[in-house]
Structures are given as C-alpha cells and as structure tokens.
Design a binder for these strands. Structure first.
Length: 567
RNA sequence: GCGCCCGUAGCUCAGCGGACAGAGCAACGGACUUCUAAUCCGUUGGCCGCAGGUUCGAGUCCUGCCGGGCGCGCCA
C-alpha cells in the first residue's frame, strides 16, 4: 500500500512532503542534542526560487522561526541542515542569504520524475483533493433576452475551465446555467417581439420604451408573421403575450446553447427560474427566512433584514403588488442548490452584480448555511480593441458584440485562451488583431505549436522505425542538459499548477503554466537532438518529448482549447 | 457620497510576506545541408501610482490620498 502511494503520488508533492518532514525531524534531533532550544516549528513553507542559483526548492523556516528559538537565522538554518536526514533525491542542501535553506534536486530525482510521468501517461498527475465531494459551478446565466455577449463569453471560459480543473482534482462537479425565464425582463422581451410581429404584418406598432431593439427580434417577428400569419392577433392579449414569451425564450435559449456549444462550453443543468415559481420554492425560502426572524413587513412589502448580516440596507423580497423580486427568486434558487447537496457553490457573475454578493451571502447565512459555502467570482469587463482602436460595444441601440461575432473573427481556441490568460479580476483588453494573428505573437499558437511538434516527432520516429520506449527502458539519469532538466522539472510542477488553480479558483494559472511548458520544450527541442544515434539517449529524450505532449494536451484540455497534431 | 476591481518595462500582463522585480509583444543583433524557424539565443528597457504604517524583510498586508473602470432600483 505505502509503495503504491509513493508511486502514484506526484513526485513533486511527495518531495515537498518529504522535505518538510526532514526539516521537522532535523529540528527535533537538534533540540534533543541541545543545539536548538525548546519551541515549536510553525507551518513550513517551500517555494520555488526565481533565481536558479537558489536551488530548486527553498525554505524560509529559519528566518520565520528565529524569534521563536532565539537564534540568528543562519545559525538556526545551519543547525537544521546539519541534522537533516539523507535522501537520494537531493544533490545538495545549503544555507544561503539571510538564512534560507536551499534544496538542489539530484539526477536520481529527475530520473524518477521522468519515470513516473512517462509511466502514468494520461493518468498523470493522480490527484484526489476533492475525493468525490459535490461542488457546483454556475456561470454565464445570461438572460434569455438576447445573444451571449463578450463578458459572458469570458465568464463562460472561466467557469467551464474551472469546472474541468475541479473535476480533475477529484471533485464531483456540476455545471449549471440559470435561466431567468420569469420576471419583467422576459415580459419586456415578449412585448418587444409582439411589436416586431405586428410590424412584420404591416401594422403600426412601437417597441415599448425599454424594449429590446436588436434586429434578432425583427427577424423573429418576420418569421412568426410568415409561419403564423395573423392567427396570433386573434388570441386574448394574455394568451398572446404568453405565446410570445415562451416562443422568444425558447428560440433565444437555443441560440445561446448553440453559441456556447460552438465555444465548447457546456452545462449539466439549465435551471429555470420559472421552476422556482411553479414549485413554490420562493414561498418556502421566504418562510424559512421568516422563521429565522430575518423578515418584516413595511409599506405593504415583505423585507429581508439583510443589514443584520452585513448588508448596507434591507432588501425587498415581495413587492407591494405581491410579486416576488429577483432577489427572492435568487435566494430560493440558492436554497435549492444547497438542498441538492452541494458542499460548495461557486457563482461566476459579471461586474454589474457585485452589489448582489453581500445580500446573497447574507441570505445563505440566514437560511442556516455557512456564508463560505457560497463563493462568488466577479469576472471583470472586457474591452475589445483592434490594434489600439477601441471597438464600440454599447448595448443600447442594439449595438453589441456577441459571442458569435467574436468566434467568427478569432475562433474558439484563441478566444478561450485569451480569456484564460488573465486573472478574472483584471479588466481585459482583448486584442482582436492579435488573437486572429497566426504568428508567433499569438500565445495560443505558441503552446499549440509545441504540442504539434511532439506529434510530428512521433510521426518521424515511426518513419524511422524508432519505437516508443517502454517505461522500464527509459533512463532519465541520461538527461543532464540544463534544458532537459528544466523541462522535466516544469512537467513535475503540473500537479501544483492544477491544485493551485483549483484551490484559488484561478484558471489563468493553467494558461501560464502551459506557456511555461511550451517555452521549456522549445528550448529543449532546439538544444537537444531527440531522435539521434544513441538508442538509450534517444529513448530517454523521446520519452521526455512524449511526456511534454501529454502534459500540454491535458493543460489545453483543462482550458477547453484544442491540441492539434499538426499546424 | 458609498461599494467592488485595477494602477508593475514603450504596449498587454504575471508575480503563494522573502534573496538582485519577471514574461510575452514591440526595438536592436545573431542562429535553418539535420526531428516543423508558427522556433531558439542574446541586448536594450523599471522612483512596482503617491504618502505613511506593520515586519528581521512589503510590488504583496493595513490606513489615507491620487488616477481609471464598473456598480449602487419594490430592474434582472
């Protein structure tokens, strides 16, 4: 069993655990020998130094604990190093600078690392952080009143990627899209469509003041006029509005679905707000809030006393006219989420919803759940630029840039990669010209090209009758070039990149990681002849190239970007 | 006025409290008879918005300013 674990656990994580144990062990022994006074060691932190001369891993434990033990950092560090157990994974350990302990990985480590990654293939890295716990990621959730816009496309890339990453870490992930198919926006949509339908029939009809001006409704109205003629005018106004509402919502929803599918963004569940209304979920949620003592009536409306949970003002749940507010429905929706058994719920919203966070968290708390069970990620705005020219995208007058237009112009791979390169909370300037460029300036091609190069290498090998080496024939200790070692180490960092992205909810880390792997690979490829005359060296290098291909394919998959076999 | 996000190289951006602050692009100079040059190597380029504070140590944490974006409805 222990052997099994040692083999399956990613070597990088194993190494970090081992070094921490070694430090603790050394402190204990030094204390026993009287070289270090009594005291406790806090959490040990290992980092990858920026400077290569500072080793492969470094610990600042002696600087942090100097106060606790009353020793100068360097002396403490030296005492630890002197008492440290041996391991064949390290070449050397040294005390440096103000008191850092720097660890240098040895050739044995590189050999083991390559052996593990190559042996595990697509299974690498084996991760089980989530261990099957249920988590939900909700994203895009655009109103069914128009096309998916650019900021929602960004949220789509982020949400979909985060879901893939969490799943890779062993979480049971559900991806959800919340369809706001009830409420005034949808009423307005129905009335807008009715106006377009009447116009198509040649009637004098005006778009309602806050109606939807986009020409998709003009086309929809024309099509309805063609399909139905004047039949709809004979319905009662109520019936007619209901028809328009349903017709428009379904049509637009399908449109949104196909746009997202084309973009590789999918969902396990399209959850409809109307379901909450129909099933009395809102009343139920309101009752629970009431029983918890968080509601009151004033001026004919029902209020949520959210200020008691940190909000800056109380919020209306049920309007004077008896209709529920968006907030009330959203509270019911979140109640429903937690009733479905999710340990964590992650909502990805646009910047216009940030004000909603405090009250939503307050509601979750008032309903009896931990406020940490709900996490909200705000994806910041996207500005489209062409060169240094800002592309207009005002939503008024029906002027906008939809996901379809974006995909027509730059394609799914570039769009997703660009959205995932940046942290979600930074405003993004999306350069359409750059994303479309099929040149080295374009980072997505840089990564894809590295993958294609590996694929090409395999084809060349097949041509030259060079077989894929079997794992036991791979001798990683032969790889001593700086570029080979840098690449192996970079591949070894994959588990940490995935876990970091998952834990911090930062999918951009995968994009940056992929770029680093590609960089390390291109350097290796340039410096080292892979398919050469020495069979053993060829086997080792070929294995390393294959590992790179696998890791790149996995990383690209986590971003929903394709991994081409040739370019 | 209040809230959220941002301010790091000419441009776009990374940077888990650590060692001389990084990458890509742009600029300049090199490298293809050999596995894809959509590549590689090198050079140039910085009061990390400003001012205080916490710390052995701050681009990173705290406070206050300045600048930019967005939001503040019984809309969703």
């Amino acid at each position: 069993m222990r052997r099994e674990r040692a083999v399956r656990e990613p070597l990088w994580l194993h190494t970090k655990r081992l070094l921490k144990d070694m430090i603790r062990g050394a402190v204990a022994r030094a204390q026993k020998a009287g070289e270090i006074p009594a005291g406790t060691v806090g959490e040990i932190h290992l980092e990858v130094p920026q400077n290569r001369e500072h080793g492969d891993l470094a610990s600042n434990i002696a600087l942090v604990s100097a106060g606790e033990f009353g020793l100068p950092p360097r002396q403490l560090a030296q005492a630890i190093v002197d008492r440290m157990a041996q391991t064949d994974l390290l070449a050397r350990v040294e005390v440096a600078g103000p008191g850092f302990i720097n660890f240098f990985l040895g050739s044995n480590w590189y050999a083991k690392c390559l052996e593990q990654i190559y042996g595990q293939g697509e299974e690498f890295p084996v991760l089980d952080w989530g261990s099957g716990r249920k988590i939900q990621v909700e994203y895009v959730s655009a109103n069914p009143t128009g096309p998916i816009l650019v900021v929602q496309a960004r949220a789509g890339a982020v949400g979909d990627s985060l879901a893939r990453i969490l799943r890779r870490c062993g979480w049971d992930v559900q991806r959800e899209f919340y369809v706001n198919d009830a409420g005034t926006q949808v009423e307005m949509l129905a009335r807008s469509l009715e106006a377009r339908y009447r116009q198509a029939l040649g009637e004098e009809a005006e778009l309602p003041p806050a109606g939807y001006p986009g020409d998709y409704l003009v086309r929809m109205g024309q099509q309805l006029a063609k399909e139905e003629g004047r039949r709809l005018l004979q319905m009662s106004p109520e019936e007619r509005l209901g028809f328009f509402r349903q017709y428009a919502v379904e049509r637009i929803l399908n449109w949104q679905k196909s746009s997202l599918e084309r973009y590789g963004v999918t969902f396990d569940e399209w959850f409809r707000e109307s379901q909450l209304h129909q099933q009395g979920m809102i009343e139920k949620a309101a009752q629970m809030l009431e029983q918890a003592g968080y509601t009151y009536e004033r001026a004919g409306a029902l209020w949520f006393a959210s200020t008691r949970l940190g909000d800056d003002k109380d919020r209306v749940l049920r309007r004077r006219d008896g209709r529920w507010t968006y907030l009330a429905a959203d509270i019911a929706y979140h109640l429903h989420k937690f009733e479905r058994g999710f340990e964590r719920v992650i909502d990805i919203w646009g910047p216009d919803h940030h004000g909603h966070i405090t009250r939503m968290k307050a509601a979750v708390q008032a309903l009896g759940f931990s406020k940490d069970a709900l996490e909200v990620l705000i994806v910041q705005l996207v500005r489209l630029v062409r060169g240094n020219q800002l592309v207009r995208m005002a939503k008024r007058k029906g002027e906008y840039v939809s996901i379809d237009e974006l995909l027509d112009e730059v394609g799914s791979d570039a769009a997703r990669f660009f959205f995932l390169m940046r942290t979600v909370d930074s405003h993004l300037d999306f350069d359409l010209d750059l994303a479309r460029a099929q040149t080295s300036e374009n980072p997505v091609y840089y990564v894809q090209y590295a993958h294609a190069r590996v694929a090409s290498l395999r084809r060349e090998a097949a041509k030259a009758q060079v077989k894929l080496p079997s794992p036991e024939d791979v001798r990683g200790e032969l790889l001593t070039d700086s570029s080979e070692r840098a690449l192996i180490k970079q591949l070894a960092l994959f588990p940490e990149a995935i876990l970091g992205a998952a834990e911090q909810r930062e999918p951009h880390r995968i994009a940056r990681y992929a770029l680093e792997v590609a960089t390390a690979f291109h350097a290796f490829y340039t410096r080292c002849r892979i398919l050469g005359n020495d069979p053993q060296l060829t086997a080792a290098r070929f294995a390393l190239a294959c590992c790179t291909g696998t890791v790149l394919r996995q990383a690209l998959y986590l971003m929903g970007v394709s991994a081409p076999e040739s370019m």
